[in-house]
């Protein structure tokens, strides 16, 4: 590609490449439409009040998925209330207080490593640390905390980037009015970075909702609605995995997949919308 012999004239090469590039661009859209379309096409017909709000019958051959929806909500909630403060506060420190010390480099490398550890390794850790060592058992709490660890680097990185992008002139303006450093951060810097911070939290949330490998051996697989954080549960992706691989029920697998896809789509689209609206209001456009 780098050294193409001049068999083709530059103008023909230009035309060919235009076709190739357009083709690849369209391919991405086609793939997305096929996957989402296929899941929704087969899954939406399964939807009914009984499917969404009912309990599963047997091991999910028929009946609904309400306990799985509730489980997903619980583990995601636990993951977020732990990961959001840790991620956002760490991002503020890295963006506003950190210098160039060895400690800072170590923190950055740690966050980077955390972001790239395979989810199944988080699952292993969750199993040996939360489930066994801290004796939390297979539970909503073990699963939620394992997911929290995975969500931290996502939130941290996105939040840090958006805090760093806040113009220096805002900070100077605030400091020059006699605001302290922390006042400047929480009254000017954070509000200006809110769109990015929110996006980070949502990305972390999406990661917690969709994750399967990390909860495979931490959350249990109970079919009943968890009554407390100490109860085992079965979030949606795990339910889908079991339904599909153990051949329990294909229609219910389609339905579960469609619910999962819809949740992710709704979250992404509504966040994009809200963030855009906030930015517009803030920037007066």
């Amino acid at each position: 590609m780098i050294s193409m012999p001049r068999i083709i004239s530059p103008h023909h090469a230009q035309k060919i490449m235009n076709v190739v590039l357009w083709g690849v661009g369209l391919l991405a859209i086609v793939i997305l439409i096929i996957i989402i379309g296929y899941i929704l096409w087969n899954g939406l017909p399964q939807f009914s009040l009984e499917f969404i709000f009912g309990n599963p019958v047997g091991s999910g051959e028929s009946g609904g998925i309400w306990p799985m929806i509730v489980s997903t909500f619980y583990v995601t909630f636990i993951a977020l209330i732990v990961a959001t403060p840790l991620g956002v506060l760490a991002a503020i420190w890295l963006a506003e207080y950190a210098g160039e010390s060895i400690l800072v480099k170590a923190i950055r490398f740690a966050a980077e490593t955390l972001a790239s550890i395979p989810s199944i390794v988080f699952g292993l850790f969750g199993l040996t640390f939360f489930v066994v060592f801290l004796q939390m058992g297979f539970s909503v709490l073990s699963g939620g905390l394992t997911l929290a660890l995975m969500a931290i680097p996502t939130i941290l990185r996105t939040a840090e980037v958006s805090i760093e992008a806040v113009p220096q002139s805002y900070k100077e303006g605030s400091l020059a009015l006699g605001a302290s450093k922390w006042q400047t951060i929480y009254r000017v810097v954070i509000p200006a970075a809110i769109p990015g911070i929110t996006t980070g939290i949502i990305l972390g949330m999406a990661r917690a909702i969709e994750e399967t490998a990390a909860i495979l051996y931490t959350v249990g697989a109970a079919l009943a609605i968890p009554m407390s954080i100490w109860d085992p549960a079965r979030p949606l992706p795990l339910h889908l995995y079991i339904l599909a691989t153990e051949g329990v029920s294909l229609p219910n697998a389609y339905g579960t997949a469609a619910v999962l896809v819809l949740i992710i789509l709704i979250i992404t689209i509504s966040t994009n919308y809200l963030v855009e609206k906030y930015t517009k209001k803030m920037m007066g456009r």
């Binding site: 002139s169 805002y170 100077e172 605030s174 020059a176 006699g178 605001a179 509000p191 200006a192 803030m282």
Partner: peptide, 25 residues
């Protein structure tokens, strides 16, 4: 106090920009 080379209002409402220093104090 200080006024900078490039106008640097905060991305807040006009009211909040002027009230900012007072609130901070």
């Amino acid at each position: 106090g200080m006024v900078f080379q490039k106008p640097n209002p905060f991305p807040k409402s006009i009211f909040e920009n002027v009230a900012y220093g007072l609130r901070v104090h």
